[in-house]
Design a binder for these strands. Structure first.
Lengths: 338, 338
DNA sequence: CTGAAAGCGCTTACAG
DNA sequence: CTGAAAGCGCTTACAG
């Protein structure tokens, strides 16, 4: 690959002038500009990004920092939707996406810190984890701008998340309105802040009608389908089992349906199930899953757009809460009279 | 963020010595080394990648060039599996992954070319497209090393792909052995080379028993589930419809099942369906899909490993063909006597 | 409109 | 073991 100096030599001008052409700047005569462009096309010259950015301080690379192992990322349809939204937005700004996952959960924070303190990326969308607060503190003086996809650890970093509280409250409302009173919940551990919010929402819905969450009917999974299956078995083995189960994500809800089926129970006749996320799979199962839609694509897109706004110091960039929507399909019905 | 000069000043040494510590090189006394390390820890200094790489000529960034729009990528579970494998391998080498998709199909090639000729990435895994040959020619003298995930456009670039020919042949064998004679095929357009190979494999299986592919029973989709659904309807509306349909990927196979169901036909009793890929969804449907497994994770991993070997000029890096495996589940049975 | 010079923040021979 | 100097390939004031 030739350098700018060689191009300059070939076009019989200075590197300065070539640089102007490269960056579409004025004050170059038509003739010289054409001559230079011709040489560039001829040689297929592509300027070195490293060199350019060393002086320009922009890499046109956006970091997507996901403090999970890549297996966890690729197993999570909702997160992939988020990623799709981010990628789409990045594309619009002619940014490339640098994907950084953790090899092991422990290394997550330090890898993120390194990247945010380095000059490889212009900014990053950071997916929320447990210890985002501690993480934010290790960042030091002037890290690259970043937004969190989830709940903010501190006041000064924009946070983009869905209305977890409202979504969970609506779902619980719906179950109650259908006549359910014994309602199991599959939550998770470790619990990101979003799940705290969902728990809060569902408890408030219960409280609003004078009910309370029976702690014996709360079981913890880890977001995976199998963990939902285990949780389902645990709940259904209960002496006085629930008539409905609210799983705090769709994959676990699918696991619950599977557990019920394995025990010879029919969904929704003998057990109602409701999830959260609305992943594509939700419509492919029988019965189709009733769930709370959390628009992953929009979340990702919004996070990226917020970051791009942040890159321009003129603009102020607010946090955003994306609404959720209850999607009623086939996995919930009123409880059987018993 | 401090620079190496500032660190040097603080540690009362030269930048050269700091650089040695940064790169774990010998010829630094224990005492100075410790002093420098202390200052680095204290300040949280992270050396500028741009500057480092401008001299070192390594970015530790691996390109994943996907000449599709991001929507197409994220809709394709098999491609996502491939990506997971690449990401895992990259992680092992402490490489980050730069994801480059196309905004529009047309722009794909030029974006790939730019990236491969730039110094942003050390190398790339390029997912095969139609016009990879034309693409390879636009690369010019010394592009970054790359491998193709699919079939090679020219002799000198390593190609990693599954045994498409053998897999399709085995699947067709199986249908024939089950007693099927009228067999529909859902292929695709545009048709990557892999699909040519699958067509070839299935035709050879037919020929081996003295049968030939009825061109009226070949319908083209575009890999998506809906296109498979359309194709299914077309085939089943045929005056003398097939008793089995071989869809050349799982998503289209699922579409075929859906079309059959919509027409009140039962799978596999009235129609056998076989797919290709073995995506996770294949086991979640009723009946579970019989298909040809193409190990996406392994393909991605192998491609990345091949590229890393290529980065070391000592090593020779061969192309690889990953075996496929016929996975017999519930969507195929012998045809009904008619 | 054009170009010489300095600088971005590192690393790499090389001399001491 | 240590450091001064040149260089990686660009861009950015600045002078002409």
């Amino acid at each position: 690959m030739p350098t700018i100096d060689e191009i300059a030599k070939l076009a019989r001008v200075s590197p300065t002038t070539v640089s102007k052409v490269l960056n579409n700047r004025p004050y170059v005569s038509q003739a010289t500009r054409r001559r230079i462009e011709h040489v560039i096309a001829e040689t297929g010259f592509v300027p070195s990004q490293w060199a350019r950015l060393l002086s320009q301080r922009r890499s046109y690379i956006l970091g997507l920092l996901i403090p999970y192992t890549s297996d966890q990322l690729f197993a999570d349809p909702h997160l992939l939707e988020v990623m799709r939204g981010i990628e789409a937005a990045a594309n619009r700004y002619e940014y490339n996406l640098l994907l950084s996952t953790a090899r092991a959960p422990v290394e997550a924070a330090s890898a993120c810190t390194r990247l945010l303190r380095s000059d490889v990326i212009d900014g990053a969308v950071v997916v929320e984890t447990q210890d985002l607060r501690a993480f934010a503190e290790t960042l030091g003086d002037r890290p690259a701008p970043w937004v969190v996809l989830g709940y903010a650890p501190a006041g000064d970093v924009p946070a983009i998340h869905a209305d977890d509280y409202g979504g969970a409250r609506d779902a619980m409302h719906y179950l109650i309105n259908q006549g359910h009173r014994r309602i199991g919940v599959v939550s998770s551990t470790p619990r990101p802040f979003a799940l705290d919010e969902r728990m809060r929402g569902l408890q408030d819905a219960l409280q609003a009608v004078g009910l309370a969450l029976d702690p014996r009917l709360v079981v913890l999974g880890d977001f995976s389908t199998v963990s939902g299956e285990h949780a389902g078995h645990t709940l259904l083995a209960h002496p006085n089992p629930p008539t409905a189960i609210f799983a705090l994500n769709d994959r676990m809800a699918i696991g619950v349906v599977r557990a019920a089926t394995a025990r010879g129970m029919r969904v929704p006749e003998q057990l109602s199930v409701i999830g959260f996320d609305d992943i594509a799979l939700a419509t492919l199962l029988t019965p189709q899953l009733t769930t709370v839609r959390q628009p992953g694509y929009l979340l990702g897109e919004t996070a990226a757009e917020t970051l791009f706004a942040l890159l321009d110091p003129q603009l102020t960039t607010p946090s955003a809460i994306i609404p959720t929507e209850l999607i009623i399909r086939g996995s919930v019905q009123p409880p059987e009279r018993g």
